[in-house]
Design a protein around this nucleic acid. Structure first.
Lengths: 340, 340
DNA sequence: GTGAAAGCGCTAACAC
DNA sequence: GTGTTAGCGCTTTCAC
């Protein structure tokens, strides 16, 4: 029934039980498990045997309560269906789990009030550090975070005043890179479609700034509020063609939207890129395999997640922090969808 | 500095402090917070004020240690970059977080030994329930899970003997559905390419069984072991064309692989579906927007994640479990990529 | 290198 | 409806 040799009494095994079996005191068991180097080789072996025999598992609640130390990192994450965020999560999980930390996850929350509530729901666990894999709302009172006095990494923020540390990509730079690409290609009647909150707005600003440098502009901006799936991109494509006749290039806020637009173009027998060029954002794996292959800006989200984890880890280990703000560059992948 | 009015001493605020301010005993504070209905309206108000004034936050470690209750659900999840798993995670997070549970996440692990290690790393937290969003290895000694004596949901398993509860989709049925579709379309030289572990193998078995019913078979099976990204699909497409001349239909283990194959077909000027039909698995959002739109089997992963969360919740609340095994059907989306 | 005593902060059990 | 006492299981502190 019970291959572990665990006792059949309902009472869980405690250090005391292990101590009795090993013929040592409880504190020695504790030390043998937490600081093996502080215990004689022989004692260590006896304790290990007793642990195996009794099936002992430490109780984190008791351990953390007494020691005041916690191996929990609170991670606030948003929509994992967005490949960006999935990559970030993967990257930071890798780093933190491999270093003995447990991840307590919560949604990041969509309104300032919801964010406050979710952060408050984590504080009883006294996490050792916090990681926000998506933007905090500007309206949020950040003192509830900073007052915890623990290492904190925010991500994607566009400002220079993080609570503690920041891993980001400057959206305006990314937008500018794409704007220059559009300028080089000589597109003249240009549209943009995407979400226009925080990051999207900054990206659009950079995009327009680069166009203005060569005397052009983004003549139509579609602010998508509902939907980020391909259908929304297809609908946006139709709307652009209606509202901006002669439009020869559209930048979308994401590759998913752009993929929808490519399919709408096929349906309407509009040739991409000859009739109209299309570009996206994020460089998801299928981008290079769409028809035509989609020009996109790649975001090193996996590396960003890893970096966030490493920064927390560094601070948890008391290393001096040299860079509080780390920004990653977006990389242009020019493909056929914007060819000339 | 501290808008919460929290004291500046380093000692954290305890129930005792709140009790003093409110003019009641510690246990009354505890009750006012955990069982408000057991406390007079007036007392409740005084406690609430004292909590606000002191900035008190309960210490989960102490609370759980004493009460023996835990609000933590351990979730073992795999590659969130796979849209299936991202959806599952999203679904169960929704349900569990909205009902007061905190999610402690770990990777599910790739080998039986790693799985054992990761599960063991969660047990010190005495979770109230466990959820495995991906398969457990058959070699894993499951007694370490069942001996915890808590509600457990496994997902995707193809057997009928879960540790406790199971949310799954019968891969063989799904494969059969696709096999019948291929049979109806009259394809005759058929290939399969995908991962052939656990789930993929069962799916292929169903696929072949349906083909055999009409006197056909899957003549070439490519076992992909490295890579599930589009490039691997493109390479598999090339290999099939080399090794099975006259092949008129390929089923891929995922839509991502199939998307890569579609792009390889374009590169080689092979027409889909006239020259060769292609189908995938998973019905990711872009599937309907590829060129041609991709035939795929949709898996209701978001609902499956929600269901898993609800089943755990039901058992945690002591409700009688009526169905220990819940299976969801895969839905065929026949699109142009397998048209005749 | 090991042990004895104490206490982390909370809430169960029981009393009133 | 509220209070008193005790103890959850561990690890700190100090002693040897």
């Amino acid at each position: 029934m019970d291959g572990n040799g665990k006792k059949n009494t309902n009472r869980p095994v405690r250090v005391e039980d292990v101590a009795r079996v090993a013929g040592v005191s409880p504190i020695t068991v504790s030390r043998a498990l937490s600081y093996p180097e502080k215990v004689k080789e022989d004692t260590r072996r006896k304790v290990a045997e007793a642990v195996a025999q009794t099936g002992y598992v430490v109780n984190s609640f008791a351990s953390s309560l007494r020691s005041g130390r916690s191996s929990v990192v609170a991670v606030f994450s948003s929509n994992v269906r967005n490949p960006h965020f999935a990559n970030v999560l993967l990257g930071c999980t890798e780093v933190l789990e491999d270093n003995g930390y447990q991840l307590l996850t919560a949604r990041v929350g969509e309104s300032a009030e919801e964010q406050r509530r979710l952060i408050a729901s984590m504080t009883p666990f006294r996490p050792a550090a916090m990681l926000f894999t998506d933007l905090l709302k500007p309206e949020l009172d950040r003192s509830i975070i900073s007052s915890a006095g623990i290492p904190v990494v925010e991500m994607w923020d566009q400002r220079m005043d993080p609570i503690d540390m920041l891993v980001t990509m400057w959206e305006a730079d990314a937008g500018r890179t794409m704007g220059r690409h559009f300028a080089e290609r000589g597109f003249s009647r240009i549209a943009y479609a995407g979400l226009l909150f925080d990051r999207g707005r900054r990206r659009l600003e950079g995009f327009r700034a680069a166009l203005k440098e060569v005397g052009r502009d983004c003549e139509l901006v579609l602010s998508l509020t509902e939907g980020w799936q391909p259908d929304a991109g297809a609908a946006a494509f139709d709307e652009v063609l209606d509202r901006l006749p002669g439009c020869d290039a559209i930048l979308f806020g994401s590759d998913i939207l752009a993929a929808g637009a490519l399919s709408a173009a096929r349906r309407r027998k509009v040739n991409v890129p000859t009739d109209i060029a299309i570009a996206g954002f994020g460089d998801i794996p299928v981008a290079a395999h769409l028809d035509p292959p989609l020009t996109s800006l790649g975001v090193p989200s996996l590396e960003m997640g890893r970096k966030a984890g490493q920064m927390l880890l560094g601070k948890l280990r008391g290393r001096e922090i040299t860079e509080r703000i780390v920004s990653f560059p977006a990389v242009l992948h020019a493909r056929d969808s914007t060819a000339r």
